[in-house]
Design a protein around this nucleic acid. Structure first.
Lengths: 153, 153
DNA sequence: TTGATATCATTTGCATACGAATGAATTTCT
DNA sequence: AGAAATTCATTCGTATGCAAATGATATCAA
């Protein structure tokens, strides 16, 4: 019985029927939905900042002044994307920009006092966002999920 | 020793120090990176179609003709987003649009012959994309991960 | 030293993604 | 039937996200 099942499974893997392709079971599709849900939870808690903007501030808090490019690497954004994010944070007075003294290509980014205040104030909310995002899972499931998600990312 | 560690852990959970907030350990951040990685894998296999466009075609293959709105619900896109996706698929001749005879509000979407050919041709590639996305995990880990991801999405 | 390479930033173009506002058509309620 | 509420689609504005091209600066190598 189980031998036959295994055989069938093998055959399926080797020569799957196109009829069986179900979008709603594919990782990519579900990953997109999970991400959407998280963004919605984020917006419900922190309305005036997007997740990428928050990520930029949180990382600047960690590492202090860095180049725009380096910051992009740290928060997984390409150069074009990070520029837009930083421009908007600068327009709101949360970060300030300056040129690197030695390497004139680099644009240094740093938190302003307002930016530091904002990120310190928002971090407790961010903890709630993480909690609510993971709420469908038990503590043990969370540990398992996070371990596997890290492997996948 | 381990007793002290557990006590420390408990204290940490109850009253976490803001200093401990690490962006790179938050679900939302890793979810975003995992999604990014999947999109990159998708683009490497299917260059001339985006994941949302593919999702629309795959779902139309499943359910046949539907309204634009209903399709959006099925593939988790809001009305504004699905419109853009369908417009581009229409411009490429992969779907065709018509008005619902009875309910004149509804815009019916259907695959063209070219659209059906395209999705049938792409599904084997989509299987590879799913496989490659999940490649960092073992078969058992994949089963666990998918179960938990579904709960989260 | 200078010529080739590499790095950093910017810009453009295209494609999601979503909130909010609007208009048209339908349904529900009274 | 007529008014109110709902639903479907569209449009606008804002914000990622990435590829590709460009310009400025640095670094490396012959």
């Amino acid at each position: 019985m189980s031998g036959e099942d295994n055989l069938l499974k093998l055959v399926e893997v080797e020569a799957p029927d196109d009829q069986d392709y179900l979008l709603q079971e594919q990782v990519g599709f579900i990953l997109r939905k999970a991400h959407q849900r998280h963004v919605a939870i984020f917006a419900a808690h922190i309305g005036d900042l997007t997740p990428p903007q928050f990520a930029a501030l949180a990382k600047l808090r960690d590492v202090g002044e860095t180049s725009q490019n380096q910051l992009g690497t740290l928060i997984a954004m390409d150069a074009a994307t990070v520029k837009g994010v930083i421009d908007r944070l600068k327009a709101r007075g949360l970060v300030e920009l300056s040129r690197h003294e030695v390497d004139k290509r680099r644009l240094l980014v740093n938190l302003t006092a307002a930016g530091r205040d904002a990120i310190e104030r928002l971090i407790p909310l961010a903890r709630e966002i993480t909690q609510e995002t993971l709420a469908p899972l038990s503590a043990k499931e969370i540990a398992t999920f996070m371990k596997l998600l890290v492997k996948l990312a």
